[in-house]
Design a protein around this nucleic acid. Structure first.
Lengths: 121, 121
DNA sequence: GCTTTACTCAACCAGTTAGTTGACTATAAT
DNA sequence: ATTATAGTCAACTAACTGGTTGAGTAAAGC
């Protein structure tokens, strides 16, 4: 089996966007925020309530997500209303999708096969 | 439109795995390594050649990928042979896929609509 | 046996990250 | 007008990151 040689061109900004997206999602608190926002728009205070950390800390996490373009923050009176944006997530999936062939990985499959043989099954 | 409320249970290890995967992929050099390995197995030296940094630096990047379970490193004589593993990538995609609804984002769509109106088109 | 190759390891450095606290600002409620 | 709420900002800390260099090790080649 021969894997297609795929040359991929990417601008510096596209690289930076992927950096920011993956980096933003590398923190469990931020992934929890994303998960929460998928259920609908919320304010910062509401968002922060379940977390065992200061409002400032959650605000900073939200800022990271906002800088990465994953969430929109809208100032409304004295509250900040946050909502999820899908585009950067899609871009991350698009990048990952290039390695889809490896999800049903021939090497993984081989490894599983060998593991089964080692176990004598 | 109502988004399904999805409660998601995740073990500490699954969380840590996602942390490691997204964190590993948040660096452009490491994504380039992954891309390179998708074209086939290579040694560390071969892998390091195109990069403008020391072998030690690339070795460290590879170690991060290895720790995250994204690559296997096999010692063979004095060379290290590296190959891609798909499973963690699949897990990352599975997580992201829960937000697939937002890729064709009603808010994004609204934002684009408003942007078009602002431009008077 | 000596030299080159392919690495690893430890120490160091500068910059970033994830959290804290305390002081502040602006809006809303009484 | 006062008070409570929602949040920001600046300063600080501890730990982590991404890179370096120099020394060391183990396998291959001559």
């Amino acid at each position: 089996m021969i894997v297609n040689q795929k040359v991929h061109f990417m601008t510096v900004q596209q690289m930076a966007q992927l950096d920011a997206t993956f980096s933003a999602l590398s923190d469990g608190t931020r992934r929890a925020i994303v998960a929460r926002l998928a259920d609908g728009e919320t304010t910062l205070s509401d968002l922060a309530a379940p977390f065992d950390m200061s409002l400032t800390a959650v605000s900073k996490h939200l800022r990271v997500l906002s800088d990465a373009g994953l969430v929109d923050i809208e100032k409304r009176g004295r509250t900040r209303h946050c909502r999820l944006r899908g585009t950067p997530i899609k871009e991350a999936v698009d990048w990952l999708s290039k390695y889809e062939a490896f999800w049903i990985d021939r090497f993984d499959a081989l490894a599983r096969h060998l593991a089964r043989e080692e176990n004598g099954t």
